[in-house]
Design a protein around this nucleic acid. Structure first.
Lengths: 390, 390
DNA sequence: TCACTTCGTTTAATGACTAAACAAACCACA
DNA sequence: TGTGGTTTGTTTAGTCATTAAACGAAGTGA
């Protein structure tokens, strides 16, 4: 971990160019050496040499000849997405969801377990067991399991320690270190909302969109902020507590100390509380069912929650001026009943400059945004290393 | 403006290393070649060669010998901050303030003019006259005037056109293009709050602090957001309309369409409105004077405004988790009467994780943050070019 | 079959960097 | 005053990644 100051030398050039070649194969599908040379501006000789290294590293494969364009047939190159496998975990309050993916993020296996008493000792034990099961499912490959990503319902510091997870009742636990020591591969821990944002950014509704805000509406409200295609984290390594953005100066007091926090008005909890007040019993899914069957009280309730949701989103839009806002997590099941009210509130409450560009979407991956995002962390860490060693 | 894709080659290495050497001289004060070699990790021979180029370009000077450390005396090198000069303009609603600075941002000359009728034609004429006067004050130098930066009270797009300046009544004017054509040097236009944020980041209270939010409290509230030492601009190139963050769900309607916008409660305008209601006549400065002389009503008024100011800042802190929040522009004259109330509101309303690190400051440059920041834009553009041509 | 393409490799040259040797300048102590 | 040991900055010789150009291999189409 020495950091001997990066200066420009030949090694650096090679790294840079290897990364360029690698990325163009990664994103540009099957390509010939000649095409890579054309696209990147690198000389044919250079490309040949770098491709050779990548083939030696088993990161790129020759998949046979392509169509001739009037001369010798090209040899097509493809990223070897089975050079290794990644594991993504969504650690919920009462469940663990896990996926095994290839290096493109395609899901190879998916499993879900319920978790009864999430006290730390037994929860941790169950977590490692789940990871072991997923590892056992991975096919043989040159790099094996390249990493593990875990999304947790709480605040995480930049060293992957859980600082505060109110609903899980885990606190001050160095999860990254523990799991890394257990499995001997790089582990990334992040907040569930950040993981979800990543998932949607890479594989879901936010694909390729630079500025994206992901709003995870579950028991509370969490947010993942992606600026310039990168997750934004604040000064101390965690931010995005937009659930505690106050929307009411003298509103309900919140355990965070503030008054009128957004999540007191627009979360799943808020929905259920208000449902109980209105004499509607049941969980989110039964309320959706009620709305489906034409229950006016349920429909009105969703509309009201949607308005509050929209008011908070309007604030976010005025602050960040994003390209899209993606509403995710369990609430996305009710998208049909929220959509209009959310859109209306946002339209009323945002500056026209912002409104013109911005779109509101619901999570494409539904409640799988976070697992997929978690797996992506692992993949990204691995590919980042590849790009720097090439 | 061709963009032939940047690949790694020898030219790139040289640029990178030249920039490294240049920056170390820029920031490290007088340095010898040997010291630069030590600090950067570059070979002594390389440093010598690159320094020669920089001396040829008149960007670096040999300023004579330094103290011996037991052997041959070193030749000290210094950034030639008089290789060129920059102009910064703060275009206010009823004034124009301008500075001429050297390449370190030191103010060489400062002028202020009042502006009567800020209609577009005459305002523009006066603006160019002011710039001409400042240019005339610049000493002879190798690069001459390297650029002009202008902060304006309105929304600016990424091409330097003013989209909307409600208080100035200028609209849809391509200011950057006009001024560039007139003077033939690079011109940067930005919002007054962004410029102020830059000014404080480089020369004021926020020196060297990565995540900084600058809150410009004047007629309205504007904000400049600096993340990772860089100004953040949203998707369409302008963001930071935090003045229109709503802090009251069903609050006063705002011309922006939203309800309960922060600036309706915490701006200079809000202060004056409330003062009038309370029977206190006069401007900001006379209210400050009243408070100084012990007028309870004035003191209480500042306290109330401070609370609202703090509530909005708390929201910002929960969102961005910055290292510092800097309160600037005219309101900083009243810092003494606002400070306690602001701090109290922030303490009450932020998550403890954020509060630990974060500090609230008042602008060190007072109402000069924006001019200085504007000049910095020009310097930065110039130095950026230098670093890339080296 | 022949002329013309296209693909990918080989070859020789360029240029930026580095380690090591070197010359110049200086200090300190006898 | 002289001499050994330092420090500074330049010179020299060598390494390595890229590139342009030449080239062989492989294919198309008339």
């Amino acid at each position: 971990m020495a950091k001997p100051k990066p200066t420009g030398d030949q090694t650096m050039i090679k790294k840079i160019n290897t990364a360029i070649v690698f990325d163009s194969v990664l994103k540009g599908g099957p390509l010939s050496r000649a095409q890579i040379s054309e696209q990147t501006g690198l000389n044919k000789a250079t490309v040949s040499s770098l491709v050779l290294d990548l083939i030696d590293a088993q990161l790129v494969e020759e998949i046979g000849q392509g169509e001739s364009k009037g001369g010798r047939k090209p040899v097509m190159l493809l990223f070897n997405s089975h050079a290794g496998y990644a594991i993504g975990i969504d650690l919920g309050v009462n469940y663990i969801r896990g996926v095994l993916t290839d290096l493109r993020g395609n899901v190879i296996e998916e499993r879900q377990w319920s978790m009864k008493r999430p006290d730390m000792a037994s929860g941790l034990k169950q977590l490692t067991e789940c990871i072991e099961k997923l590892i056992a499912l991975a096919p043989a490959s040159p790099y094996g399991i390249v990493g593990i990503g875990i999304g947790v319902p709480g605040i995480v510091d930049d060293k992957g320690a859980i600082l505060f997870a109110p609903n899980l009742e885990w606190e001050r636990i160095e999860l990254q270190k523990l799991v890394e020591e257990k499995f001997g591969v790089p582990v990334t821990i992040d907040n569930e909302a950040n993981a979800g944002a990543q998932g949607e950014q890479k594989y879901g509704a936010g694909r390729g969109i630079p500025h994206q805000i992901y709003v995870s509406v579950g028991i509370g409200i969490g947010t993942g902020i992606i600026l310039n295609k990168e997750l934004y984290k604040g000064a101390s390594g965690f931010s995005g507590e937009l659930g505690h953005l106050s929307i009411e100066y003298n509103g309900k007091p919140c355990r965070c100390g503030n008054h009128g926090c957004w999540e007191l008005y627009a979360s799943e909890n808020a929905l259920l509380d208000r449902a109980a007040e209105a004499g509607l019993e049941g969980e989110l899914d039964s309320l959706v069912a009620a709305a489906e069957s034409g229950d006016e009280r349920a429909i009105e309730l969703f509309r009201s929650i949607g308005s509050y949701l929209g008011a908070g989103i309007a604030n976010i839009v005025n602050v960040f001026n994003p390209d899209v806002v993606i509403i995710g997590n369990r609430i996305s099941h009710a998208s049909r009943w929220l959509e209009a009210a959310v859109q209306e509130a946002v339209d009323q409450r945002t500056l026209s400059y912002h409104r013109e560009r911005m779109r509101i979407l619901f999570a494409e991956l539904q409640d799988r945004s976070a697992v997929r995002g978690a797996a992506y962390y692992a993949i990204n860490t691995f590919l980042g290393k590849v790009r720097n060693v090439g």
